[in-house]
Simulated scan of single mutants.
Amino acid sequence: MTTHVPTPSRVALVTGATSGIGAETARRLHGDGFAVLLSGRCGERGEAVTRELGSDSACFVPADLTRDGEPDRILDQAIDRFGRVDVVVNNAAADHTGELLDVPDTEIRATFEINTFAAIAVLQAAGRAMRQSGGSIVNVTSRLATVGVPTMGVYSASKGAMKALTAAAAVELAPYNIRVNAVAPGMTRTSLFEAWLSSQKDPEAVARKVADAIPLGRPATPQDVAGAIAFLASPSAEYITGITLPVDGGYTAQ
């Protein structure tokens, strides 16, 4: 049986919210006064973040967004639990690296299934849920939707598709007062980044090389990205739609 709570003033759904940028975004939006529904594949991590935020104003729904009907299900869960949904952060994604000419078809399809097809389905479900009352959808893309990096071609293509969709969806959904924007993080110090760094022969040298390539001299933190998402989700951005906001320390400005 679903536990009903008083309808909060603002409700956000964050996909891929069990770690990294997604978890930090859930924390930031919760701190900004949102009730938050978190979704993701790892129940243990998702429940841990939910307990941290408090069960009265946060809940976790495990979901594999590549399965048919899952995006609609989690939107329905958010509305059933909190009465409405005002913001959807389309963050769930999978990394991929590999020499472009040798990437197996199965890996290409798997990358697009989560990074593109599932993300499109989330956007569609969010738009349907918001069609009467309006809202804000924030897609999380990547600096690699704009610039080329060797071995990242398939990932870049999957995120580039979402960058293009952001602009198109913003125009199409504007009559419903649904804003659609994206943030494009650069290198971000998530657990995946730290694991990659620690696997290098000389992590300190690699860290310096990464920082030297960024005009502001450091990778992003999950908090940096969450702050940009929170801005686009806020009333302060109520006249902003169709943009991709780089959060990359100036990397793509070079």
Rank of each mutant, 00 (worst) to 15 (best):
S156Q: 04
Q254S: 11
G249T: 00
T106I: 10
P203N: 08
A78Q: 07
L101F: 06
R45C: 06
A226M: 05
S236I: 01
D86V: 07
A125H: 02
G40Y: 01
G148M: 05
Y239R: 14
A121H: 04
N177S: 14
F112S: 13
A230L: 03
L232G: 11
A129E: 08
G20F: 04
A213N: 12
E99K: 12
T7K: 15
G98H: 05
P150R: 12
A92H: 00
E99N: 08
R131C: 05
L29E: 10
S55R: 15
G54C: 09
Y251S: 13
V122S: 12
A220T: 05
E47V: 14
Y176D: 14
A110R: 15
L232P: 08
A118I: 09
P203V: 08
V171P: 00
T252H: 05
F231W: 10
F82A: 12
A253P: 05
H96C: 01
G148A: 15
T241P: 07
G20H: 03
G127R: 01
A48V: 00
V183N: 07
T221V: 09
D224L: 05
S55G: 12
D102Q: 14
V154K: 13
V36C: 10
T97H: 11
A92C: 04
R109S: 12
T7D: 09
S133V: 11
D56G: 11
T188Q: 04
D64N: 15
P246Q: 12
D248V: 09
S236L: 14
D72R: 13
L197C: 13
A211T: 04
P104L: 08
R189M: 14
M1F: 03
A157D: 06
V87W: 02
A58N: 04
S156E: 00
R81P: 01
T116G: 09
A167W: 02
Y176Q: 15
A228N: 04
A93L: 08
S57R: 15
V147K: 06
V11H: 06
E204D: 15
T18H: 03
R109H: 11
F231P: 02
T111Y: 01
G40A: 05
D56C: 02
